[in-house]
């Protein structure tokens, strides 16, 4: 892979203990002339993205892209559309709800508001936040962007609200909460390796793939001569976290445990999900972090 991808800023905003996203974590705009009404997901990501880009004015926004993962997308709007149509009739469903209910609506709205004209990709699923970071690195490597904002957002949809009386809420975990976690990534050239950087990755969907194999594959991809036994390995089991931030869990943990707080050296951060999928990110943490 050659040079790494520098992580030059990170932002993590989570729901408060009451499960609600605080107003301070939302963009102030409720609607915009360019994109119309903005939903909670859009306001949450726009706010975090502005925090992430703060101070990085030299970036050419036409060459900045956005790659975000989400498990729930804007499913609340899907639900609202169906409920409205069934309860009061189709003509009460606003025209904007179809586009804003699609999972990629948030990345589209954010790109439009902030005029980010680089690649704009939404990934789906439980581990899509981690996938999105890897995809953003590829986009920079492929030459499609000078910088990418990558990570995940989720605001869980409460299907139980609409079920017939007597149905109980069934959640995989009791603590599911909204969150957005973003990383600002650039090609290492521009930051001279003074910041944490991503130097390789691997992804497999196989039964019980050994940690060593994931690390070995990521090392091979990095193109660097690294001793596996000198790499600090952290394995995150997403079924074993206190609060489930859904797709945002892995980026949030990556930021908190590795990017901001890990000791200097080479780190492998591994995520294993409910299904067979496992991912590994290989990072260099320098002595002089931001």
């Amino acid at each position: 892979m050659g040079k790494g991808i520098s992580i030059i800023n990170t932002v993590s905003n989570k729901a408060a203990s009451n499960g609600l996203v605080p107003e301070t974590a939302l963009a102030t705009e409720l609607r915009s002339p360019r994109v119309g009404a903005m939903n909670t997901q859009g306001r949450m990501v726009v706010h975090a993205l502005r925090q992430c880009l703060d101070g990085h004015t030299s970036l050419d926004k036409e060459r900045v892209g956005l790659c975000l993962g989400t498990a729930c997308g804007a499913n609340t709007i899907v639900l609202e559309s169906l409920n409205t149509s069934h309860s009061s009739g189709f003509f009460d469903v606003p025209a904007s709800w179809y586009a804003t209910g699609l999972p990629n609506s948030t990345t589209g709205v954010v790109a439009s508001l902030e005029q980010l004209l680089g690649p704009n990709v939404t990934l789906l699923g439980e581990q899509s936040g981690f996938d999105a970071i890897i995809m953003a690195c590829r986009m920079i490597r492929f030459g499609h962007a000078e910088a990418m904002i990558a990570g995940a957002f989720d605001t869980p949809v409460q299907l139980n609200d609409t079920q017939p009386d007597g149905d109980e809420l069934v959640m995989l975990k009791s603590n599911v909460a909204a969150s957005v976690s973003l990383l600002l990534l650039v090609d290492e050239d521009t930051e001279q390796a003074r910041t944490p950087s991503i130097i390789g990755w691997s992804s497999k969907a196989q039964h019980n793939v050994p940690t060593e194999e994931l690390v070995r594959t990521a090392i091979k991809m990095s193109g660097q001569e690294l001793e596996p036994n000198r790499i600090h390995t952290t394995v995150l089991d997403t079924s074993d976290t206190d609060v489930d931030y859904m797709a945002a869990t892995a980026p949030l943990q990556l930021i908190d445990r590795i990017v901001r707080h890990a000791a200097a050296g080479t780190h492998a951060f591994i995520v294993r999900g409910f299904d067979k999928k496992s991912l590994c990110l290989l990072l260099n943490i320098p002595h002089h972090k931001n």
Binding site: G73, L102, S128, V170
Partner: peptide, 30 residues
């Protein structure tokens, strides 16, 4: 409901039951 919530966690369409994918897998939405 239980099944719906399980799959709600996973809108990823890549079929992991039919094959052991040794390379990267993902589901995108644009």
């Amino acid at each position: 409901l239980k099944e719906a919530h399980k799959i709600n966690q996973n809108a990823d369409l890549v079929p992991k039951d039919i094959y052991d994918w040794g390379g990267p897998t993902f589901t995108l939405s644009t």
